[in-house]
Design a protein around this nucleic acid. Structure first.
Lengths: 216, 216
DNA sequence: GTGGCTATGTAACAATTATCACGGAATACC
DNA sequence: GGTATTCCGTGATAATTGTTACATAGCCAC
């Protein structure tokens, strides 16, 4: 696939004006990454801001000892506020970004970010909307960690994953869930088994099916 | 006290150009609030962005059941990213802001925020720096909650409070600490007593003195 | 099928945090 | 002083989460 105006216009026509779309095609770089590809690590330099076309990207906070905590997902038409602030302040990444499914995106170079902010009000609004969304996401992450017990957090996470892939069955290991909840694999196994006994999920190797846990 | 150019120039001369300072004086509203004053509640409308001149403001996330979690403090020359995003997207507040000491600030009305972004590059940089800072703060808050045990979080909180007031003795109740850590008063009392037995703090009613807990 | 790898199940126990229940201390107010 | 109020200390106990240690199960490669 290649970037063309029609494609972008279909996707972003409501958000961006045509002039901006043309500039995005001219200065942006199209990129396709496969599931599991690590797009950014803590300490990495960020020289461009991604705009997701398709797929999903998982943003995780990880500390020195390898512990992790899920912050949020990026999906279609999303951009990443971390890279925005990092770019605009030329700082290093503080997070890990991993493609959670095959993902197509456009990389916009730093200079254009600022330039377009004054040139296209639709871009400015997009940037601020991005900030707003990510703040909301971070606050939601804090709510989860601070106010809920693990079983509720696990259910919330399953819902989020389900919403992310748009289906009730998805592939994931207990280990991965443990990482995202900043706890151990064993604890997740235990809680999942409980949920299975309650008839709320169906477990198999590498796979979880949600039964009465509704898509939010 | 009244806003005058000299005063502002002394404080913000390095950050803002003179033209901007004059506009701040013209369109901003000077405000003084006493300790404990609740400047913003969840659900409140935000029609202006504060710039802190002196004092400190505590930003807390609170959920429906009254549980709380400290997000960060605002100090001199700081502004609040929450109010920025809320203003620029005309949304309601999601947090509680309380004056933690007598605080002087300037309220800048919404329209000017945007206008100055294109007019003064120093203002634009200030806005982005604010976003950056608050993202850092939120990530730090998540680190604390997700990766540390309560005793370490308590020590970190005491340090933060000490740094905020710039001294080793400050007034606070165990109840308040409990709220900020999203736990109960009893748990805080117990942990504090432990610290006292280790000779790291000195406790009295409404007051804590840090002994070997260094200012960060 | 066999062997090897990864993923899961689970018991047993430890550590941490939460809750309940009270008594006592410090302070404010009259 | 006396009394009310707020704050603090602490034991007892429960609930939650973390750790260790193994066993078993599914799957892939050969």
């Amino acid at each position: 696939m290649k970037l063309d105006l029609n494609f972008l216009h279909n996707k972003f026509g409501i958000i961006f004006e045509v002039g901006l779309l043309k500039e995005i095609i001219e200065f942006g770089t199209y990129l396709e990454v496969e599931e599991g590809f690590v797009m950014m690590r803590p300490g990495g330099f960020i020289r461009s801001v991604p705009i997701i076309l398709n797929g999903s990207v998982k943003i995780v906070r990880s500390d020195a000892e390898g512990r992790e905590a899920l912050l949020y997902y990026l999906g279609e038409k999303d951009s990443c506020a971390m890279s925005l602030t990092c770019c605009l302040n030329s700082r290093k990444s503080e997070i890990t970004a991993t493609a959670d499914s095959p993902t197509q995106l456009i990389q916009v170079p730093v200079q254009k970010i600022e330039e377009w902010m004054t040139k296209y009000s639709s871009w400015k609004e997009y940037v601020f909307m991005t900030y707003q969304k990510r703040f909301d996401d971070l606050l939601a992450a804090i709510d989860q960690i601070a106010f809920f017990k693990l079983d509720e957090r696990l259910i919330a996470l399953l819902k989020k994953k389900s919403a992310q892939c748009g289906c009730m069955v998805f592939n994931v290991t207990h280990e991965e869930l443990g990482n995202e909840l900043a706890t151990s694999r064993e604890v997740v196994s235990r809680l999942l088994k409980q949920l299975e006994r309650l008839g709320r999920v169906k477990l198999s190797r590498n796979k979880i099916e949600l039964l009465d846990i509704a898509l939010k």
